Amino acid sequence: MTRQLTPDTFDKIRPYHDDEVPGVLDRLAHDREFLDAITRYRLPRLSRHAPWLARRLAGFGLQRQMRGIASVGDFQDHIAHYMRRMLANTTDAFEVAGLEALDPQRAYLFIGNHRDIALDPAFVNYALYQAGRSTVRIAIGDNLLQKPFVTDLMRLNKSFIVPRSARGKRAMLAAYQTLSNYIRHSISVDNQPVWLAQREGRAKNGIDRSDAAIIKMLTMARRQEDKNADFAEAIRELRLVPVSISYEYDPCDLQKARELHAVHTAGRYEKVEFEDIRSIVAGITGYKGRIKLTFGTPLESEFASPDAVAAEIDRQVLSGYRLFPSHQMALEASGLAPDLVDLSEVTDADRRRFDERLAGVPDELRDWWLAQYANPVLNRAGRANSND
């Protein structure tokens, strides 16, 4: 039986509409926690000694910056300014490949590898924005939406909510059915592109592998409509396009190494409060070196199963992944596969930069830090062993 979709079916998970933007911005300008978060980074001394004054100044500044923003498009124009400044200050190059081969009039479901909480989809969006194309609706887990102001900011930027905190099989099934319907509706009805990670959570160990369960979720809406629906056709209608992003350096590499080490030695890792938000800030402000973003080709073959789709996504992600000197030098330093090391593009400047970063890594985290950069080389050769 076809599920009846009403105008409010997706209200709890969808991005904000244009007519909601002014009200949300006004709410943010008076949100005490949001203003405190701003002042801690922009006015740290004043926020400690006169928090009320710092908060008031931040509110005035925010209202001034947001003046004239009346739609999601206006908000993203504003973000583009900060993206350009971030690229200039924290990267050496940003290269995009493959986008020119995709129809600018069609919406695609971009499914990519996942290294940075916020920047992976942000760079996809920036590439689309620069090319004059529609930006993506971004899938974001509700575990990241720890504060109302974070939810507001994400939904202003065309994010929709993935229900990771639903409890019980029935609630989880209903939540994922709604999510599947929303993604399908975005592509097939609204003709709006979507970005989704190939797996839940970042690949902290540098091994990019798709989760077939995500593919099953994506086809739930079609199966709900027609239990005899052809699987390959359900995949084709979503216009899946694998996307590969490669960072020469990850601003969160040390934190990821610390987490991997803790899981290996203690069996678990406990995040501190707002750690994900701090990771977002670190990713935005930290040095990234060169970045390569590669758009693959739509999945239009006769795929027989979710595993087959996941395998094709992996193939395209790995083939489009740029291996930088940092990856080769990490593999060399690890000693894991000398036969795969290629130092032909490594310059003296590359070596100095790598050695300086490695020197700042505590001895107990060294192997975990190196693995993040070495594993993409091993993974492409089919030799990576997951330790995430």
Rank of each mutant, 00 (worst) to 15 (best):
P193L: 07
D190L: 15
A171M: 05
S186G: 06
M172A: 14
S188Y: 13
S180K: 05
E200K: 13
W195P: 01
R170Q: 12
S188F: 14
H185P: 12
S186V: 00
M172E: 08
G206W: 05
N191M: 05
N191P: 02
V194P: 00
I207R: 15
N205W: 03
R199L: 04
G168A: 14
Y176M: 10
A197E: 07
V189E: 04
I207S: 09
V189H: 02
Y176E: 01
S180F: 00
Y182E: 15
N205F: 00
P193A: 07
L179Y: 11
H185K: 03
I207E: 11
G168Y: 00
I207V: 14
R170C: 03
I183A: 01
R170D: 06
N205Q: 15
E200T: 09
Y176I: 00
A174R: 13
A175G: 03
Y176Q: 04
Y176R: 09
Y176G: 05
L179M: 10
G206E: 07
I207D: 14
K204P: 13
R170H: 11
Q192H: 13
A175F: 04
H185Q: 09
T178D: 07
N191H: 04
G168V: 09
D208C: 06
P193N: 10
D190H: 15
S180P: 03
G201F: 01
I183N: 00
R209K: 15
K169H: 12
R184D: 12
E200Y: 03
G201E: 01
S180N: 02
V194R: 00
K204T: 04
G168E: 10
G201T: 12
R170A: 03
S180L: 04
G168I: 11
L179K: 04
I207A: 09
I183T: 08
Y176W: 10
L173T: 15
N181R: 05
V194W: 01
G206Q: 05
R199N: 08
R184Q: 13
M172I: 14
N181H: 15
I187S: 02
S180A: 10
R184L: 02
N205P: 14
A203H: 06
S180E: 00
P193R: 13
K204Q: 07
K204H: 09
T178N: 08
Q177D: 08
R209N: 07
Y182K: 15
R167I: 09
G206H: 06
I187L: 05
I183E: 01
Y176T: 04
R202K: 13
A174C: 05
R199G: 02
E200V: 10
A197S: 15
L196V: 12
S186R: 02
Y182Q: 14
V189N: 05
R167Q: 05
R209C: 08
N205D: 15
K169N: 06
Q198M: 00
I207F: 12
N205E: 08
P193E: 12
V189L: 02
D190N: 15
S180G: 03
Q177L: 14
R209M: 13
S188A: 10
Q192K: 12
H185M: 06
A175R: 01
I207Y: 08
Q192Y: 02
S188I: 12
A203I: 01
V194Q: 03
A175N: 02
K169C: 05
R209A: 14
V189K: 10
A203L: 02
N205V: 08
A197P: 14
K204N: 04
